[in-house]
């Protein structure tokens, strides 16, 4: 399967992050893992670009981040756990509708099934 890289995902990354967070709260690395899993390995993100997207979503009030409890037994720096807010959930539903419409129109023009 051909891979989809970061450039092709431009403009969709935020929606993808919201989608990953619908499965439950997660830190950055886990979000990435979920996305790669959902994309069956075909998604190739520049991993660093996830964080600016998370900051933008948080600033827009769509997700909320919280540092994990320092009492956890895991080694290494504390991780920031992100939670999908109601606003983010709404935005995700809108974006999904817009994307379905987009693929059906463009798919129709290109003669591909949407």
């Amino acid at each position: 399967m051909a891979t989809i890289n970061g450039d092709a995902l431009r403009g969709h990354l935020e929606t993808l992050v919201l989608s990953a967070l619908r499965r439950g709260d997660a830190h950055g690395f886990e979000i990435l893992r979920r996305l790669e899993e959902s994309g069956s390995g075909a998604l190739k993100l520049k991993e660093g670009s996830l964080y600016p997207a998370l900051y933008r979503l948080e600033a827009a009030g769509m997700i909320k981040g919280k540092w994990e409890d320092s009492a956890t037994s895991r080694r290494g720096p504390r991780r920031r756990i992100y939670h999908l807010c109601r606003k983010g959930r709404r935005r995700f539903d809108e974006a999904r509708g817009e994307f379905q419409q987009f693929t059906s129109i463009i798919g129709g023009i290109l003669g591909a099934s949407a």
Binding site: G6, K46, E47, G48, S49, Y51, P52, A53, Y55, R56, A59
Partner: peptide
């Protein structure tokens, strides 16, 4: 390498700052 080009990431992070 997985994290991406540092200069590009700096620019992206800057764009995320109000």
């Amino acid at each position: 390498q997985r994290l991406g080009d540092p200069a590009e990431l700096t620019r992206e992070l800057q764009r995320a700052v109000p």
